[in-house]
């Protein structure tokens, strides 16, 4: 379990995280979603005790990270930025990490097999491909058999096979009762892996909800396409009550704020002919973009500011 309470992080003038509060619960995969620069990595670094919050408290399994007596048994992490010496072999990296906690060598071999790196375990980690590097990072995260696993953009740059492997692994870890928290800027990936979502933008909480709820909300917001020869009459009949009607072409209406059932009923009551009545499916990506639309840090075409700010939050 991870508890974030009123956390603010400031790097000089730049406010990276702004009064953020949420809880990550065990037994499910929780997705941490937000545009680039939203403060996801910063938040994860604070969870792991690498950066100190300017204000607020971050607790892992009830304690501050730095107060954990055996952190590798409590929480395992895969950071987006590599955290492995390029000159050291995978086996020696894991061995050194294991030795800090008195974890036996046999466990090192186990995690190497678990992530499928046995053939390259004696090679320099610097020579690893991106996918092998991610696997080594996951081996490090699982080394202490932790109750909580957090991963920053774990599927970045992976091939489809690797993505599927990580997805299955994470679901398995959650099914064992562990807390699994992973970040991504891709809603579509989250929809396949996560049950719960924490969405942030510009360092602030936008939503703390289930994937199901986001999908429901997305379809609620979606328009219904209506084709009718009586467009003007139908428009008048639908007007009011929070219903918005737009028209992109003659005889075609896009209706928001009323489900297709109600539109059909109103049309029948008024005796209007309908040629088509189609609920438009809003994609998850649309729903996510709508949620975060105001909070996107770096819109394209805003190059000057992006260049100045990017490094601070990367």
């Amino acid at each position: 379990m991870i508890e974030i309470e009123h956390v603010t992080k400031r790097y000089g003038e730049k406010l990276a995280v702004d009064d953020l509060s949420f809880v990550v619960r065990p037994g499910i995969v929780t997705g941490f979603l937000g545009p680039n620069g939203a403060g996801k990595s910063t938040t994860m670094r604070m969870i792991l005790g690498l950066d100190a919050p300017t204000r607020g408290s971050v607790r892992v399994n009830g304690r501050r990270y730095r107060d954990l007596a055996a952190p590798l048994h409590e929480i395992g992490a895969l950071l987006e930025a590599r955290a492995i010496h390029t000159g050291r072999s995978a086996a020696n990296h894991l061995l050194a990490m294991a030795q800090t906690h008195g974890i036996p060598r046999s466990r090192v071999d186990e995690v190497i097999d678990l992530v499928g790196l046995r053939d390259v375990a004696r090679k320099r980690a610097g020579a690893f491909s991106l996918g092998m590097g991610q696997r080594l990072g996951i081996a490090s995260a699982l080394l202490g058999d932790p109750r909580t696993v957090i991963l920053d953009e774990p599927v970045n740059g992976l091939d489809p096979e690797g993505i599927l492997w990580i997805r299955t692994l994470l679901k398995g870890l959650a099914a064992e009762g562990r807390t699994v928290f992973l970040s991504s800027h891709l809603m579509s990936e989250m929809a396949l892996t996560a049950e719960h979502l924490v969405i942030i933008g510009r360092g602030r909480l936008i939503a703390d909800t289930t994937v199901e709820e986001v999908v429901r909300q997305a379809s609620l917001d979606a328009a219904v396409r209506v084709r009718t020869p009586d467009a003007a009459a139908l428009r008048d009949a639908l007007a009011g009550d929070g219903v918005i009607v737009e028209s992109s072409a003659a005889g075609v209406l896009e209706v928001r704020g009323a489900p297709s059932e109600r539109i059909g009923e109103i049309a029948a009551r008024e005796g209007l002919v309908l040629h088509e009545l189609t609920p438009q499916r809003a994609s998850l990506e649309d729903a996510y973009l709508r949620l975060t639309g105001d909070a996107v840090e770096y819109h394209t075409g805003d190059g000057g500011r992006a260049a100045g700010d990017l490094e601070l939050v990367a």
């Binding site: 005790g49 690498l50 952190p71 950071l79 930025a81 010496h85 990490m97 906690h101």
Partner: peptide, 10 residues
Amino acid sequence: TGMIRSSLMA
């Protein structure tokens, strides 16, 4: 190399 993050997390 970023190894320091692993060292300090442990």
